[in-house]
Amino acid sequence: MILAVSDFSEILHITLFTLGVAALGTALILPGGIALGWLLARKRWPGKALVETAVALPLVVPPVATGLILLKVFGRRGPVGGWLEGTLGLEIVFTWRAVVLAAAVMALPLLVRTARVAFEEVPLRLEQVARTLGAGPWRVFFTVSLPLAARGLWAGGVLAFARALGEFGATVMVAGFIPGQTVTLALGIYHHVQLGQDDRAFVLLAISISLAFAAVALSETLLRGRNRSRAE
C-alpha cells in the first residue's frame, strides 16, 4: 500500500475536520444538554416525559431519518433554515455547518442521559442543606450540584464527542459528500470503499478506531473515578 503525499494531506484534512466538527458540535450542546439533564433529574414539569422521549429518539430512529428531518427543517425552504438564511444570511444544509448540526443532534441523547444520571447521583440532602445555609438555587447549582456531578458530566461530554466523531447517516443526508467541505472520517471511509480504494479507507478506519478507542477509554476512566470517589 503506497499513499501519495496528497493522500496524506487529504487524510490529515479529513481527520482535523472531523475532530473540529465533533468538538464544535459537542460544545454547542454542552450547556443545553447539562441544563436539560439537570431539569430531568431534579424537577417535575408538564411535558417532561414527552421531552425525555423526544431527546432519546435519535438513539433509536435510523440516522438517515433524523438527517431527513434536519434537511426539511434546516433546508432553504424549511422553517428554521429559511429564517436563518433570510435574517442572518446563514446557509446550513450542504455546508460544514450541517455536519456540525448532525453531529450535535446525534450526540445530544448520550450527553443528556449521562448528565441526568450524574445529577441524580448527587445526594439531594446536600443541595437541601446548602439552601438552609443561605444559598439560592443558582449558588447551590454552581457550588454543589455541578462540582459533584462534574466527573459524570465530563464522561458524558467525551461520550457525546465520540458519538459525533463517528456520525454518518444524518450527516450524509443533511451535508452530502462535498470534498474539502463536508467530508468526515465516516463519509471518507464509505466514499473510498465505493471507489474500491481500500488502502485509503483502511487508513481512515484505523484513525477512526484509534480516536473512538481513546474517547471511550477516557469516558470509562472518568466514570470509574466517579464511582471510586462515591465509594470513599
Partner: peptide, 8 residues
Amino acid sequence: PEARGIGY
C-alpha cells in the same frame, strides 16, 4: 429555605 434563617 435560604431566606428563613433556619439551620438544618
